[in-house]
Design a protein around this nucleic acid. Sequence first.
DNA 1: CCAAAAGTGTTGGAATTACACCCATGG
DNA 2: CCATGGGTGTAATTCCAACACTTTTGG
Lengths: 260, 260
Amino acid sequence: MISQEEVTDFVKNGHQHYLPHISIDSVIFGYHDQQLKILLLNWIGYNGWGLPGGFIQRREPLGQAANRIVRERTGLDDLFLQQFYVFGDSPYRLTERSIREFTEKFDLAADVEEGNWLFERTLSIGYFALVDYSKVTVTSDFFTDAHQWCDVNNIPDLLFDHNDVVEKALTTLRQQIYHQPIGYNLLPEKFTLPEIHRLYETILGKELDPRNFSKKLLTLGLIKKLDEQRSIGPHRSPYLYQFEKEAYDFALRQGIVHTY
Amino acid sequence: MISQEEVTDFVKNGHQHYLPHISIDSVIFGYHDQQLKILLLNWIGYNGWGLPGGFIQRREPLGQAANRIVRERTGLDDLFLQQFYVFGDSPYRLTERSIREFTEKFDLAADVEEGNWLFERTLSIGYFALVDYSKVTVTSDFFTDAHQWCDVNNIPDLLFDHNDVVEKALTTLRQQIYHQPIGYNLLPEKFTLPEIHRLYETILGKELDPRNFSKKLLTLGLIKKLDEQRSIGPHRSPYLYQFEKEAYDFALRQGIVHTY
DNA sequence: CCAAAAGTGTTGGAATTACACCCATGG
DNA sequence: CCATGGGTGTAATTCCAACACTTTTGG
């Protein structure tokens, strides 16, 4: 948690450390309990839910900035993290924001000047991340006081243009799933076929034939069957599988190709 | 052409009209003579080739800015124009640039202050456009004095990180061609099968079986055969085809789908 | 009649879909 | 022994890739 003074300093002098006019918004997808969820934060002054975001340091590479922002919120590092769009056209992003409104909301010293960097038009670069839900510890900051993992099929009205951002992230993810392997960061190291099967069904929002599905992943060489099983109560024990890291990484780089 | 005074004003006061720290670089693909080319401009002071680019006006929607920038250079409006990546990590983009070097190069009044907006770190949003080469009239400006249409297989060393930008644009274009219809902006309204066939071969850089190719496009319903032929000299007259606008637009929006 | 380019159909193989029954486990 | 969920194979179909000859045209 940061102090009031630090926030005031951030508002007044943040532009010395961060690039003004550009921010990063991150859609952090987590998978749990057969649901695809995204991390939402409750923004104190605005009294509403929004995405985690942040600014880019003046000398910081972009991807590193996105990684830092996600790390600060989730504690996770070295994720599958992907740029997917720049948002700059919603009414909220086209115009400046009200300084007075802001300082009142956050109970800050009101001597913020006209033209302060935080209140000018700010484009936002959207990144999405795929994380293993259970490994995440969410950290709050001055501007946010609560979080929730929200089912993607049931997103409430979000602040700013964040509903657009989420939607675009989802469509991008669903498109990519056909061309890139997904799952490495969403599943534990060892997983069962039903687990990855449900993951894909959940992401795509439709049913997939279990026989054909496993055939496909095995044919592509993305996963391999282990000699272990997991005990799951009064049912047949499923086998465990693992990603084939080399094939997986190759598919990540090259994509899963189609032809004309 | 703009005057020296206007340029000085742009350097000194441009940040009042444009967003600092962000620019747009555009890769304008043109197709002609069975070659896929991109538009390069010769930058006067730097004495090298680079992409057309520009800044975003403070209240201007992003896509509109990209469109304006392309229009200013090519005279073309209402193009297929697509955002594909944000570049911010090359050494050139991570650090500030030298003011002295710049003012000397352009023979400008040297009283540009430290921290001038043009010399701070600037991210660039990459857009690519597909244009009908023959309709383009290239306009110069103060910073550039020549242009060329350069074959994509033979791109010289470009200024800044523009080689990266071109490469990413090309790979994006080639990926997209499998999932989105291409050609509407590159071909005349009525075209022949061999023409669109060569276009696709050129973009993909490989041969495509003409029989399978036409079958595919017709099956997808993207084009339809007209009852007219074109006379092409001492050879059999090819039939003319037209895009099916509805199917085309639908495919643009939804993508050409594949399944798991 | 000839050179150059356009047009067109078939077939074998691969990939994809659809589909249903048996197995293992713990209670 | 039963309820629950996991595991697996095959046949029909569709899609894709490979392939070569005939037609048209103007000179």
